[in-house]
Simulated scan of single mutants.
Amino acid sequence: MDPNYISALAGFGVPVLVLWLVLVIVGFIMSAFVTSLFVRLVIRFMRKSLDREYRYLRGDYTAYGSKRAPNTVPRDW
């Protein structure tokens, strides 16, 4: 095999490798950006549900996170 072919392939391969690395890095950045937008949307539109679940995980089992203890006011029915 002629050495000129090897140097030509190496010369062509370096820019292709650099372009591939740039595309991979840009892909990771765009993926992180889109994921952050999705998380923001979920937090914005599911805020009440997420807050309720978080209170439940902390051990606060009262309805709607009220400050009064459960069943302190008797019901009339």
Rank of each mutant, 00 (worst) to 15 (best):
52 R>K: 11
37 L>R: 10
70 P>G: 03
50 L>N: 04
23 L>F: 08
40 R>W: 01
45 F>V: 09
21 L>G: 12
22 V>Y: 10
4 N>W: 12
31 S>K: 02
34 V>P: 00
56 Y>I: 09
47 R>N: 14
5 Y>V: 13
50 L>V: 10
26 V>Y: 02
51 D>G: 02
20 W>C: 01
62 T>M: 01
26 V>M: 06
48 K>I: 06
22 V>K: 07
4 N>E: 15
25 I>G: 00
20 W>S: 08
39 V>R: 08
40 R>T: 04
44 R>W: 11
74 P>A: 09
17 L>V: 14
32 A>W: 07
66 S>K: 15
29 I>N: 01
29 I>M: 03
36 S>L: 07
59 G>R: 02
76 D>M: 12
8 A>E: 14
21 L>A: 15
24 V>C: 07
36 S>F: 03
4 N>H: 14
51 D>T: 10
38 F>Q: 12
18 V>I: 15
73 V>Y: 13
56 Y>M: 10
55 R>Q: 04
59 G>S: 01
2 D>M: 09
29 I>V: 15
56 Y>L: 15
39 V>K: 10
2 D>W: 08
32 A>R: 13
24 V>T: 09
47 R>S: 15
43 I>S: 05
20 W>R: 01
35 T>N: 04
30 M>Q: 11
47 R>F: 07
17 L>P: 00
6 I>G: 00
26 V>W: 05
34 V>W: 02
56 Y>R: 15
49 S>M: 08
55 R>Y: 01
34 V>T: 11
49 S>L: 12
15 P>K: 06
52 R>A: 13
20 W>M: 03
34 V>D: 03
27 G>I: 02
48 K>L: 06
54 Y>M: 10
70 P>L: 07
67 K>P: 01
36 S>H: 10
8 A>P: 00
22 V>A: 14
9 L>K: 09
74 P>K: 10
46 M>L: 02
1 M>H: 08
77 W>M: 08
72 T>I: 15
5 Y>H: 09
8 A>F: 12
31 S>E: 04
32 A>M: 07
56 Y>S: 09
39 V>S: 02
8 A>Y: 12
49 S>D: 13
75 R>F: 07
57 L>W: 09
27 G>Y: 01
11 G>A: 13
58 R>A: 04
65 G>C: 02
68 R>K: 12
20 W>A: 12
9 L>P: 00
3 P>H: 05
44 R>Q: 13
65 G>I: 03
3 P>N: 06
68 R>Q: 09
13 G>D: 06
65 G>S: 05
8 A>S: 11
62 T>R: 15
70 P>S: 12
35 T>V: 03
74 P>G: 02
72 T>V: 15
16 V>T: 14
44 R>E: 11
61 Y>W: 06
18 V>K: 07
63 A>R: 14
71 N>M: 07
52 R>V: 03
66 S>F: 11
38 F>W: 05
12 F>A: 15
9 L>Y: 11
67 K>C: 02
58 R>H: 07
75 R>K: 14
45 F>W: 13
23 L>T: 05
66 S>D: 11
11 G>M: 04
56 Y>D: 08
15 P>V: 09
13 G>C: 10
41 L>E: 04
46 M>H: 06
13 G>Q: 10
67 K>E: 14
31 S>G: 15
4 N>V: 14
6 I>R: 12
58 R>I: 11
22 V>L: 15
19 L>Y: 13
30 M>H: 02
17 L>E: 03
76 D>C: 04
45 F>Q: 05
30 M>T: 03
50 L>C: 03
